[in-house]
Amino acid sequence: MDIILIFISAAIVNNFVLSYFLGICPFLGVSNKTESALNMGLATTFVMTLTAAATWPVWTYVLVKFNIPFTQYVAFIIIIAALVQFVEMFLRKSSPDIYRAMGIYLPLITTNCAVLGLALFMVLRNYNYVQSIFFGFGTGVGFTLAMLMMSGIREELEFADVPPVFQGISITLIIAGMMALAFMGFAGLIRG
């Protein structure tokens, strides 16, 4: 029950993009086509789930145990960078098709603040191992959802008559604001 709540909370109610402003760079940069938005979303979900699975043991059994929590940021960013590199090498060898679809997005994910944010929130909220993995997966699903919705709107927007100064980033941000307002409707669903 607990796990389902964490999943829904991370995916919908406290959507990382729309309520914590994490992962805004790819959200603005890669959301102009539905296909690339979906691939970016899937690649990110994959890395996020792995990140949760890898950072939790390191945090619990190394950083806390040896009383060096202040190395948290350095440790987490190294884990994420190594993980992304590993996933890239693995995909290139094992499934070239998936690699072709996701490959170019993988390096971008290292500097996606949603991935590091996820590891930090996981520690702040004292999740256990299973909860952390579902939190990571739910966050990825929420990110993919936001990317897909935005890309759908932006494809329609190409036919709209937007004033020149609002074109591009500006109108995208205003649409994101409206989406954030709409997502607030879910707020009563779960506390926290």
């Binding site: 100064v165 995208t172 941000l173 205003i174 307002l181 607030m184």
Partner: peptide
């Protein structure tokens, strides 16, 4: 109230980007 919520942040940022575009044009 909307201004201190996430939605307000997106709106203000969007309008400021538009204003920057307008001024540089």
């Amino acid at each position: 109230i909307v201004m201190i919520l996430p939605a307000g942040a997106f709106f203000v940022f969007g309008f400021l980007v538009a204003l920057t575009n307008y001024l540089s044009r």
